[in-house]
Amino acid sequence: MNSNNYITTKEVAQRLNKSISTIYRYVNEKKLRPVYEDKWQIDSSLLFREEDVDRLIEEQQNKPGYTTGEVAAKLSKHPSTIAMYIKTGKLKTEKREFKGRILNFISEQDLETLQKEIGEKESGYISIFNKQHNIHLYQSFQDSKGSKARIMSLDGPGVAELEDGNRIGIERLFQLGYTPYYNLKPQRYVTKKGYIQFQFRGSINPKSIHINIIESLIINMGHKNVKLREEEWGLNLYVKPGLIRNNDNLYLTYESLNSYLVDGYLIQRHDGILLQTDYMPILAHVSKSTKDNLKHYSKISKLSLDDYVESILEKHFNEIKDLNNN
Rank of each mutant, 00 (worst) to 15 (best):
P241A: 01
S298F: 08
E58Q: 12
N258G: 11
L294V: 15
Q60Y: 09
D110A: 15
M221F: 02
E70T: 07
E117W: 03
N17L: 14
A73E: 15
D143F: 02
K99Y: 07
N225Y: 07
S140N: 10
L111E: 07
N5S: 02
G89R: 08
N166D: 13
H223Y: 09
L75K: 12
K116D: 14
H136D: 09
F141L: 10
Y85I: 01
F141Y: 11
I282K: 02
K63E: 03
K30E: 15
D164P: 02
K95N: 14
K288Y: 15
K227D: 00
I102Q: 13
V190H: 03
V286G: 00
N325Y: 11
D322Q: 09
R25K: 09
Q187G: 01
R245A: 12
Q132P: 00
R49Q: 10
E122G: 13
K321Q: 12
M152K: 01
F98R: 07
L91E: 05
T191M: 13
E230I: 06
L303D: 02
L266E: 13
M221Y: 03
V12R: 08
I102P: 00
G89F: 11
L16C: 12
K207W: 13
Q41L: 03
S19F: 12
T9M: 04
I168L: 04
Y6V: 00
I151C: 02
D248S: 11
Y181A: 04
F129V: 10
S45F: 00
P206W: 10
D307V: 00
M221I: 12
L154E: 04
I168D: 07
D263R: 14
T68P: 01
Y85K: 00
A73H: 10
S289D: 15
E163K: 05
V159K: 15
K131E: 14
N225V: 08
N62T: 14
L91Y: 09
Y24F: 15
E58V: 07
T9Q: 09
S123A: 15
L283N: 14
S153V: 01
Y238L: 12
R188P: 04
G158V: 08
G65Y: 06
I20R: 03
E215V: 04
I219C: 07
G177W: 06
F105V: 08
L303I: 04
N28W: 02
I7S: 01
H136L: 02
R172Y: 07
I168R: 04
S76L: 05
K92D: 05
L91R: 01
L75M: 15
V159W: 11
H285D: 14
F48D: 04
Y297H: 15
Q276T: 14
L162D: 04
L111S: 10
H285N: 14
A73G: 09
K90S: 10
G100H: 10
T67N: 01
N318Q: 14
I219H: 08
E50L: 05
N258K: 10
Y260Q: 13
V27F: 03
E37R: 01
I320Q: 05
T8G: 02
S256T: 14
G89M: 10
V239N: 01
